[in-house]
Design a protein around this nucleic acid. Structure first.
Lengths: 227, 227
DNA sequence: TATGCTAATTAGTAAATTGCTACTAAGTAA
DNA sequence: TTACTTAGTAGCAATTTACTAATTAGCATA
């Protein structure tokens, strides 16, 4: 902060100045039906009544941004211990027609088996449901762009981090894991190469997943110890 | 935003609630003396008087975050048309001991030839100067972490974007460009491989840079047209 | 029990990229 | 002209990626 700023602050009475509101919006991703899906809630009130939007909360004075995101996640899904990460902060002047709101977006990756929320088509209450990112309804605010941005972030990080593992449970087969990589990347991968690449991140169990009418696949776990 | 949120907003009188202040802090990188350097300003007032900090401004109600960053950049350096990008938003409760300030950080990459500001050692006025990121003074607030984060972001983006070009002028030699890549990545590269990789992003001119006591190097420009 | 079906897993090889060494080229300085 | 220094290029080994095909193991059903 420059000297100008410091001078300013010396005489700065926090209440005297208008401030923007700060919110946190969540992009909750999961994979269902072999598609990347995102949680949306239907707006009842103006503005954008009837349209869908990302879940969000205002940031309290007594909580950090991460805590606000965690709280929102818990309120909307009941989930904790989910991988989440800050995405981007959106500050256009008229994002929200009511007032100046700066939104700090986060994304989270939720394993399908932890979700108790119904799919859009099956939902009685159409208020909150997962939608495939490729077939989103009309979205309120700048939320379509936020989702697009989140999708892009994931596509990048998949290649040099292990975030894809956040979308499977404790145990998984390699065909399952590969499918997740393919959905996140938006392209197919070669079986043999994929296995070589993740070989040092996984540990085989002695269990097999059978019951299909073909050869069963081995069940693996993520390697936990420091690599 | 959920229905709960919407109910809340319906009765929300913007002035009735405490809000955090929102600031923008800049990490201005450049390369000098074959080192990555960052611009710091010396704090005169409490808190952290005498320590160095990143330049920053408060976000006005009538400007977007990008505009605030642009304004800060212009105020501190007089520069415009500089590559900059949002980095991360910092919202810990006691980042600033005076009050709750949420800081949206940006980083910018400034070509060395556009800088009119003196180096730390040469500066008469020791208020603002560039410091090598490897030898930073004690920093105020969480600014050391912000710089570390910016450095990491750059290291990643260098590999799959062309941000490195933002640190050279219109014209450059390949040894110069390679040095910039090496400094950003923090590792040496092989000449031949480096040239193959960037071959489709550059265009040779018919000019040479001579005057050294060895073979002159050809001067290139960045390829402008759509690749 | 044998046969066929399906997807899991493994082999293997060509093409592209990366790691690395060494050679040739073109200025300046004596 | 020679020595010196860095620019630029050749070329090959090691690794990764692209891609094809063979083998394997449950399940279903004849």
């Amino acid at each position: 902060m420059s000297e100008t700023e410091q001078e300013f602050l010396k005489n700065y009475n926090s209440a005297d100045y208008q401030k923007p509101s700060v919110a946190v919006d969540l992009v909750l991703f999961t994979i269902r039906d072999n598609q990347l899906q995102v949680l949306l809630t239907k707006r009842q009130a103006h503005p954008f009544a009837g349209m869908f939007a990302l879940p969000g909360v205002f940031v309290g004075m007594d909580e950090t941004l991460d805590q606000a995101a965690q709280r929102a996640l818990y309120q909307k899904t009941g989930l904790q211990d989910i991988y989440f990460e800050q995405l981007y902060t959106w500050g256009d002047l008229n994002r929200d027609p009511r007032m100046r709101i700066i939104s700090v977006s986060y994304y989270a990756l939720i394993p399908a088996d932890q979700i108790r929320m119904p799919k859009r088509e099956q939902s009685q209450n159409q208020d909150a449901a997962f939608f495939p990112v490729e077939q989103l309804p009309e979205l309120a605010f700048d939320h379509a762009e936020i989702i697009r941005y989140g999708r892009e972030r994931i596509r990048n990080k998949v290649n040099y981090t292990d975030i894809a593992f956040s979308l499977v449970g404790e145990e998984f087969t390699l065909p399952q894991l590969q499918k997740i990589y393919e959905i996140l990347l938006g392209q197919e991968l070669y079986k043999a190469n994929f296995r070589k690449k993740i070989a040092d991140q996984i540990v085989p169990t002695d269990k097999m997943l059978s019951g299909m009418r073909h050869r069963p696949s081995r069940i693996y776990q993520k390697l936990k110890i420091n690599p």
